Simulated scan of single mutants.
Amino acid sequence: MSMRDRIKKSVAHANQQLGEREGQLLLNTNFDLVHLSPAIQNNEKYQALVQVIQSASSRNLSVAELEDNIRQLGDEAWELTQDMLSAAKRAM
């Protein structure tokens, strides 16, 4: 594998994981106070995802544990997480 391919693979892998700051943002954001689009709030995975985030926050889980719990909800929940992060960043 060439160096370029290894770099691409590494970047792709990093982009598929929560960064420490993103994870902390999820754990520290009160999503009741953040303006979320109806598309986010009406998603069937939204309530389950918020419960996972709130549970992780109250139990003081690590970002890696939070990410594992989100991924257990499936790909749609992971994509919804990215949308929620974007909304939380805009609200800051």
Rank of each mutant, 00 (worst) to 15 (best):
S86Q: 14
N43W: 00
E20N: 11
S37W: 06
A12L: 12
I70S: 04
Q72P: 01
R21W: 06
L33A: 11
A12F: 10
P38T: 10
I7D: 00
S58V: 09
K45W: 01
A39Y: 08
S37D: 14
Q51I: 02
A12Q: 11
P38R: 11
D68I: 06
E65P: 02
D5R: 05
E22K: 01
N15M: 14
I7A: 03
L85C: 08
N30R: 14
I70T: 05
E20R: 13
V63D: 02
L27Q: 09
V50A: 10
Q54W: 00
Y46E: 01
A39M: 06
I70W: 02
L36S: 08
E44C: 02
A64Q: 14
R6K: 15
E65N: 13
N69H: 13
A48F: 10
S62D: 08
V52Q: 01
R6P: 01
R21P: 00
D75L: 10
A39V: 12
D83R: 14
L36M: 12
R4F: 05
E67M: 06
D75C: 01
A14R: 15
D5Y: 00
T29M: 04
N43D: 15
I53A: 00
I40G: 08
G23K: 05
V11W: 06
Q82P: 00
N28W: 03
Q41V: 14
H13R: 15
L25E: 07
D5W: 00
D75Y: 06
V52K: 01
Q82W: 09
K45C: 04
S86H: 13
K9N: 13
R59K: 15
